[in-house]
Each structure stands twice: as structure tokens, then as C-alpha cells.
Design a protein around this nucleic acid. Structure first.
Lengths: 342, 342
DNA sequence: GTTTATTACAAAAACGTTTTTGGAAAACAA
DNA sequence: TTGTTTTCCAAAAACGTTTTTGTAATAAAC
């Protein structure tokens, strides 16, 4: 590594002058600046970000945490797109992305890890189903570290979150089904704890309500966003209620699982049963029965999260508020008119 | 940030003693060590990695570069799995992952970016189709920065690369088709420049050769790993040669495109034409015609790359050699016996 | 009871930057 | 001329660590 000292020696100036020349300060003679820049170029100089950040307190790194859920992270079909958007915007703004992966820190928390690396801000990509993370989250909320979470309610001085309008999204799906004549609409939910799951459930109930359909707990099962559990959920509902004609699912993977299970049980989709998913992942359109689903605007979520974070970083006084991104019902072929009663 | 100084003041010791106590040196009294650790815990102390790395020359960060290709990065279905494996192993080894995304550096190169951030090593995820990157690559090769590339031949003192056995993989596909009676086997290649594309082409030719089939340039088209180009390629081949009964493609996306195009042209798959892909992406198994394809062992590629990189970092004397990961033919339903001649 | 080893600590230098402060030289004003 | 700006630069402190070197105080050896 060539340092600022070597440049100083090269051009016969002091270290401070070189620094000021390189950083475009006004009180340096154009000629010396030229010489400095020339020398820097020749010596292939680039400033050590560690040394710099030690004094400036800025690293131009954005931290990234993934939930410990297996699907979370690079492989999750939903988060991929969110990530791409984040990557894009963060890069445009002149930051690099630090993905926290180190597993050898015993007592580390989100906060300590951020402080240790000195990231300027951080993005949390969680599912809301992580365990024993709550104390860490409140800790982070109070830390003053600029931070925005995705899908998980996080509010503080310099903290906020971004999510889809899960309530309205799910409501749209149910209203659509009701419009097609369905009255027995089952709900394959995510889980019983996370905000997004609860919002989707409430959207479902609100949709039923608007359509004048009474809520039947027998039609509710949780699928935990996993294929296996979703299959079980569908089977359970079929056992309890033979008359169900539609399934609305809290994710596309669960919708795929539902369709497969229904077909295995000899029930055609969408002829005898309609299925609607949530997310609109890549596979949804090309699925053998193109999936009708509630699309989450993933790019927009990533974009909003990044922009918000950058704003929080820029302006210490800003007190941010949560951002909600609209969902859109994508009509394809997995939901159709309710079968006529026989 | 609470610093080592504050701990020193707290316990009435010198800065150096605190440092040595925390780092487990032997020449510190057990009692003072206890006090120091206690204080560190109470003050919620974590060492500034910037300050530390300034003197130790280690950051415990692994750099990550993505090719500028659109598909490259978080969204590429192939690299996702590679990435997951990298993430896992890097984390186990006590490193974090620095994704280079900053676009505001004018004259930056791989090498300068690595030096600037001080990463201990770096992984290159490229496609081999990046433009004007060659000089940067040779620069990196000579830099002495530990580095392993994926799919792109990179060799140097502390540089190497990992790739699938593309030659043998493609050869297996062709041999399989030949075994099914196909004689007119078209090849939808990747591109004309990258090593992996060339290796796959050579595997194709070798497969033909072994089966006693002569090579026909009319059956070769490039699809540039993109849906649109692959469609064009298939149409061109159909124009030139009506008798072709099989298509082997250098990627799954191109295979999907081929199947769709064939069906549009009124040619049933696998009845009238067989199609084999390459990669075995997630969608392959669930595709409406489950795709027969050459599976790249993505997790293994990521694992090998990471392990190799860590070894290079550990041992400055090690001169690494390239690693080749075997491919496996996954037989599903998109390839069948050649139709009888009519 | 002196010499030698051992134990436990502190002081200071170093890493590569930025930033603050101060001041000489040059330019301008009177 | 003298006084006052302005222009340009250097010295030094600071950021938070690690590491090297030195040295008291204590323990062991004879």
C-alpha cells in the first residue's frame, strides 16, 4: 500500500498538504495540487478506508443482516429482488455493502456488530420469526444507528421499516374470489406471530367481511411459509370442510404446495378449487398453472428501504416513519369461478 | 463507542495492559484480567475493527465482486446457491462479506478497491463475458491479493479459480442423447469467448465424436445465456435443418426458451424433439416438462472456492491450482428416444 | 545475601488518515 | 513605508488499536 507519506516525500510537501490537495481543499496552490495528483496516480495511491474512517467516523459501508431462517438470505426468492434493488441504489450513492456473516462472536448483537465495523447504517432483512432477537432489536432501536428493517416493525430515533401493504393485498385476493362466487374460502397463513402474517390474516377477514361472508376458524391453517407445512394445512382443511372451493395463501411457495396437494387429492385447479398466492415470485408466471397471486413490489421495497436509510444517515435530525408499499393482484389462471353447487 | 482507554481508566490500568488482557496474552495477572473483562462487559466494549486492522493489516473481511452483467449478482439463479455456500463457510471461519457496489470511484480497479478496503481476500463472480476487464484481471493476478474466481480462468501467485467440469458435463448430455438414438443434435451455446462456453462446446463435439456423429456447423448457434437470443437460435437452426431431433443447451434458461419455441413451432417435446439444459436451476424440476439437464454442483463450487481462498490467506507460500467440480446428468422428461424415421 | 529469573505492568511508537492551529510569504491597502 | 489581508503550507494532535521495549517488584537459585 502506498501511503500519503510517500506521496509527500515524492513531491516534497507535507502530509497535511497532500491530504488537503487530494480532498480538494481550496487553500492549496494549483501547481502543487497537480503535482500531488500526478504522484498519487503514478504511485497507484488509494486511501486506506480504515485509517480514514478512524478519524472521520464514516466508512461508507452499509451493513446487512439476514434472519437466521434457512430461506432467508441470498436464496430466498422474495428477498433476492429486494436485495438487487438495495445493491443498486447503495452503489449509486457511493457505498459498499457489508454482509454480516461472522459466526465466531459470542456476545455480539446487531448493535455491537455495527459499531465494531463502523457501518454508516444498516438494513435488516428478517422474517419476523427469528427467535430471541427482540432484546437485540430494542437495543438497536435505541442505539442511534441508522437502520431500516424490512417486514419487521422497527421504530426509533433513527430506525424505521418498510413493508408491503399486506392487509390490503390479501383483502384484494379475497374480494376477487368472492367476486367469482366463492363463499368457502380457506386461508393458509404464514405464522401466528409476525406482523406481516397477522396483517395478511386481518386482510383476509376484512375481505370476507366486506363480502358478507362469516369467518370460520375451521378454514384457517398455518403453513409457516414452507412447502411441507402448507401441504399439511391443506389436508387438514379438506378433512374439516369438504365444501371449500378456494384457498388463499400467504406465499407463493405455499400456493404451489396447495395446488399440488389438491391435485393429488383428485381436486382440479382451478376447476374445482381456486388457489391464490402471495409474493409473485419468478416461478409464478411459468408455473404449469400460471399462478394468480398478490404481487409484492420487491424492487420498490428495496428502493424505499435504501432511500430511507440514506436519508436517515444524511440527516441526523430526521425522524423517519414507516413506509408501506402497495400490492397488486396479478390475475392468471389458478383462480376461476366457483363451481356450481350440485 | 467505548474505547480501550475508558476501560483502562475504569480499572486503573494502562491501555496496553487492557489490550493484552483482552487478547489473552500470558503476561497479565489473572485478577487484573478478570477486572478488565468485567469492565469491558459492563461498558459494552467491542474493538473498533478499523483501528485494529490499521495495525494488524487484517480486516477479516472477504471481498466479493460481481460481474457487470445484468443477471449476475443476487438474482442469477446459478450464483445464488454458490453465494449461499460462500456465505456459510466464510461466516464459519470468522469473516464478514464485503460486497463491492460503490460506483463512484473513477479509476478504481479490483486491486485498488481491495487494497482500499483492506479485504483479506476476494472472490470474483464473473461470467467471462465482461468487457475491458482483462487488464484489471492480470493486475489482480500480480497483486498478491488472495483471490479466487468462479468460472473464469485466473491463475497467479495467490490466485486461482473454480469451475464445473463443463467439458465432461456437456459430453455426458450428448452421449445420453446419442444413446437414445439421436443423430441430429443441435447445440445452443453460450458465447464465443468465455472459457466455460468453449469448454461446453468442446464437450459437445467430443460427445458427437465418441458416438461417431460428424460435426455439423449448421447445428451450432449461440444463445448468449438469454431467453430472447436462445429463441432466435432455435428458429435459425430449424430453418437450416428440418431433421434435427435434439437440442442441447448451455443453460437451463436457454433450454426453457428452446422448449417454448419448439412448442410454438408445433414441435412436441420430448416426442418430436428432445431438449437438455445445463445448470439444474430450481425451476428445472418443476417445469411443466421436467427438464433433463446437466447439474452443476453449485454448493460445492461455493464451498471449494471459499475453502481454497481461506487456505491461500492462511498460507502465503501456498501456490494454488485450479479446482474442477464434476457435473451430473439429471434425467427427467424433456429428453426421450429419437422419433422413428418416417 | 547476593545474583538471576520470572511476573506483571507501563510508556511509547506505529498504523494512515483528517483536522486544527499557527505562521511565513506574498499581495494589497493606506 | 507600514499595516493588513490573502495565499499557501507545515506541525502536531487525534482516531483506537497492537506491539515492542523497558523496568519495577517479586520469586527462585546459589
Amino acid at each position: 500500500m502506498t501511503s500519503i507519506k510517500q506521496i509527500a516525500k515524492e513531491v516534497g510537501a507535507s502530509v497535511s498538504t497532500v491530504s488537503r490537495a487530494l480532498n480538494g481543499y481550496h487553500d492549496v496552490n494549483p501547481k502543487t495540487r497537480e503535482k500531488v495528483i500526478e504522484a498519487a496516480r503514478n504511485l497507484n495511491y488509494f486511501p486506506s478506508s480504515a485509517a480514514r474512517s478512524l478519524v472521520t467516523k464514516r466508512t461508507y459501508m452499509i451493513g446487512l443482516f439476514f434472519g437466521d431462517n434457512v430461506n432467508s438470505g441470498f436464496e430466498d426468492p422474495f428477498f433476492q429482488k429486494v436485495l438487487s434493488a438495495i445493491r443498486e441504489l447503495v452503489g449509486d450513492a457511493g457505498y459498499d455493502l457489508l454482509v454480516f456473516t461472522n459466526k465466531n462472536k459470542e456476545r455480539a448483537t446487531y448493535t455491537t456488530l455495527c459499531r465494531e465495523r463502523g457501518v454508516d447504517g444498516t438494513i435488516l432483512i428478517l422474517t419476523g420469526r427469528e427467535k430471541q432477537v427482540n432484546s437485540q432489536l430494542t437495543d438497536l432501536q435505541n442505539s442511534g444507528i441508522p437502520c431500516v428493517a424490512i417486514d419487521v416493525p422497527l421504530e426509533g430515533d433513527r430506525c424505521t421499516y418498510v413493508e408491503s401493504d399486506n392487509f390490503l393485498g390479501m383483502k384484494k385476493a379475497v374480494s376477487y374470489l368472492a367476486g367469482l362466487g366463492h363463499r368457502q374460502i380457506a386461508f393458509i397463513g404464514g405464522d401466528e406471530v409476525s406482523k406481516i402474517s397477522l396483517d395478511r390474516l386481518n386482510g383476509y377477514r376484512s375481505g370476507l367481511n366486506d363480502a358478507g361472508i362469516s369467518y370460520d376458524p375451521d378454514l384457517i391453517e398455518m403453513g409457516y411459509y414452507a412447502k411441507e407445512y402448507a401441504e399439511l394445512a391443506v389436508k387438514n382443511i379438506l378433512k374439516k370442510n369438504k365444501k371449500v372451493t378456494a384457498f388463499v395463501c400467504a406465499s407463493d411457495v405455499m400456493a404451489f404446495a396447495a395446488i399440488e396437494t389438491l391435485q393429488e387429492e383428485g381436486c382440479s385447479v382451478p376447476g374445482e378449487a381456486s388457489v391464490i398466492g402471495f409474493d409473485d415470485v419468478n416461478e409464478a408466471a411459468g408455473y404449469h398453472i400460471p399462478l394468480t397471486t398478490v404481487k409484492q413490489n420487491k424492487e420498490e421495497i428495496g428502493r424505499a428501504a435504501t432511500e430511507q436509510l440514506l436519508k436517515i444517515i444524511e440527516d441526523p435530525a430526521l425522524s423517519p416513519s414507516p413506509i408501506m408499499i402497495p400490492c397488486e393482484l396479478i390475475v392468471r389462471q389458478s383462480a376461476a369461478e366457483a363451481p356450481k353447487k350440485t
